[in-house]
Design a protein around this nucleic acid. Structure first.
Lengths: 241, 241
DNA sequence: CTATGATTCAAACGAACGTATGAATCATAT
DNA sequence: ATATGATTCATACGTTCGTTTGAATCATAG
C-alpha cells in the first residue's frame, strides 16, 4: 500500500510532493476551512497532480489529520518535556500556575516564530479548528490532545488545591478560548478597527502578544471564585465590583 | 421580487415556511458549519421544498445572513439599551468594568435561556462562527457588530483610564475568545473528560456558567499589565509569578 | 365565481466535488 | 542494460452541490 522508505539521499521527489501538499493544505485549510477547501485547490497550489493526495495520504480526511499530526506531535512532546522538567526541578512541590500556563500556552505561542514548525499559519489553523463543526476533526484532536490535557489539568489541580476541580477545568476551557482567538485571526471580529494608533503592534509581534496573553490568562485563572446565586429562577449577574 | 406583506391574519403559510427554514438552518449550521450544510438538508429538515430557500431568501449566503440578523438585531439593541441605561444612571462617572462586561457578555449568555431568541443553539452557532473561515460571514458579522463594539470599547477606555488602549482592545479580544468557547460546544476539546465528578453542572446550567465566566473575564481584564522584555531577538516567557 | 398574485412543487441545469483507474515516467538494484 | 517498483499523470466516474424553471396550487380581492 504505502510507499516503502528507502535509505540514501533519494526519495526527493515524493518527499517533496508530500511536504508541498501538506504546506498547501495547511495554508488553505487555515484560510477557507476544511469543507471550503477542495482537493483541486490544494493540488493546484502545491503544483502536483490531483491524484497525488489520494496516493500519498489516502483521502482528504487523512490529509487533514496528517496536517495536524505533523505539528502536534512536536508540540505535545515539547509540552510534556517542559512539564517533566519543571516538575523535576520543583523538589516535589506543586508548580506555580504561571509555570503551568506558560508550559501549555506559551509553548504553543512560541511555535509561531518557528516557521519550520508551521509558524503563524498552523497556529491560526489550530485556533480555528478547535471550534470547527466537522466531527472527525474534533474527535481526532481530542484523542491527540487527551494525555497532554490530563497531565496539565492534574498539575493545575495540585497547584491550586483550594480551587474546586470543576472550576479549574472551566477556566482551562476559557483559557483555551482566549488563546484560540489570540492566534486564530486576531482580526476575528475586526475589534481591531482603530486601535494601534500609537504603537505598531499587530499579530506578527509575537514577543508582545505572548506577555499580553499570559497576563490575561493568569488573571482569569486566579480570579476570585464566582458567587453562585442561591435562588433558582432567573439568574443574577455577578455585580460584584 | 420579494413577497408583499398583506394585512390580516393570513400569510400563515409563507411565514411558517420562512421561520421553519431559519430554524432548521440555525440548527444545521451550528452542527455542521456553513459549508458542511447543504440546501437539501436544510429544506429536508424544515419540511419544505428545495426551492423555498431561494424563493424566500435568494441564496444560501443570504439565508445565513438572515439567520444571524434575526438574533443579532435584538441582541445588539439590548446591549445598546443596557449601556444607555447604565450610563444614564452613573451621573457622568465612568462605569465599573463589571457593569460593562456584564452588559456585553452577560446579555449574550442570558440569551441562552431564551428559547424564542435562539437559545443555546444560536449561541453555539455564533461562538463557532466568529472563527469561521468563510470570508463573507466574518465581513457581515463585523459590520453588524461594529457600532456596538465601538461603544463598549469606548466605555472600557473610560472605565480604565490608566490602561493603554491597545491593551484594552487585546483583552476585549481575549474575552471574546473565552466567551466563544464557553458557549461554542463546551466540549470543544473534551477538556471535559472526567471533571464533573462531584457536581452535575454542564452547559445547560447557564446560571452557573455565567458567574463562572464573569469571574474569569474580569480577572483577565483587570490583571496586572504585562512586562515586555526590553531586548529583541528571541522573546522571554513571562516567568513572573 | 373568477381573476390575480403569492407560494409551492417536481424536475432539471451545469458545475464542482472526492475518488479511482490504468498507462506513462522515473529512480534504483541487479 | 534491464527489470522492478514507486510515483506521476491525464482522464473519467458517480455524486452532490446551489440554483433555476415553469407549471400546479393556494389565498385573497373584486
Amino acid at each position: 500500500m504505502a510507499a516503502e522508505v528507502h535509505e540514501g539521499m533519494a526519495e526527493v521527489r515524493n518527499i517533496d510532493t508530500r511536504e508541498r501538499i501538506l504546506d498547501a493544505a495547511e495554508r488553505l485549510f487555515m484560510a477557507h476551512g476544511y469543507d471550503g477547501t477542495s482537493m483541486r485547490q490544494i493540488t493546484g497550489d502545491a503544483g502536483v497532480n490531483l491524484a497525488a493526495v489520494n496516493y500519498h495520504f489516502g483521502s482528504k480526511e487523512a490529509l487533514m489529520q496528517e496536517v495536524f499530526r505533523r505539528r502536534l506531535d512536536w508540540l505535545n512532546e515539547e509540552r510534556m518535556r517542559m512539564l517533566d522538567e519543571m516538575e523535576a526541578g520543583s523538589g516535589g512541590q506543586p508548580l506555580k500556575p504561571s509555570q503551568i500556563v506558560d508550559g501549555f500556552f506559551g509553548t504553543l505561542l512560541r511555535m509561531a516564530d518557528d516557521e519550520k514548525r508551521g509558524g503563524l499559519t498552523f497556529l491560526r489553523l489550530l485556533g480555528r479548528t478547535l471550534t470547527e463543526p466537522s466531527e472527525f476533526i474534533r474527535t481526532f484532536l481530542a484523542e491527540e490532545y487527551a494525555h497532554v490535557l490530563e497531565r496539565y489539568k492534574a498539575a493545575l489541580f495540585r497547584a491550586l488545591p483550594d480551587v474546586p476541580k470543576a472550576e479549574i477545568v472551566w477556566r482551562f476551557h476559557f483559557m483555551l478560548g482566549a488563546t484560540s482567538y489570540a492566534i486564530a485571526g486576531t482580526d476575528a471580529l475586526r475589534v481591531v478597527t482603530d486601535w494601534g494608533i500609537e504603537e505598531g503592534d499587530s499579530v506578527d509581534r509575537l514577543d508582545r502578544l505572548l506577555p499580553r496573553l499570559m497576563s490575561f490568562l493568569l488573571g482569569g485563572l486566579r480570579a476570585p471564585l464566582p458567587q453562585f446565586a442561591a435562588a433558582e429562577g432567573e439568574q443574577q449577574a455577578a455585580r460584584a465590583a
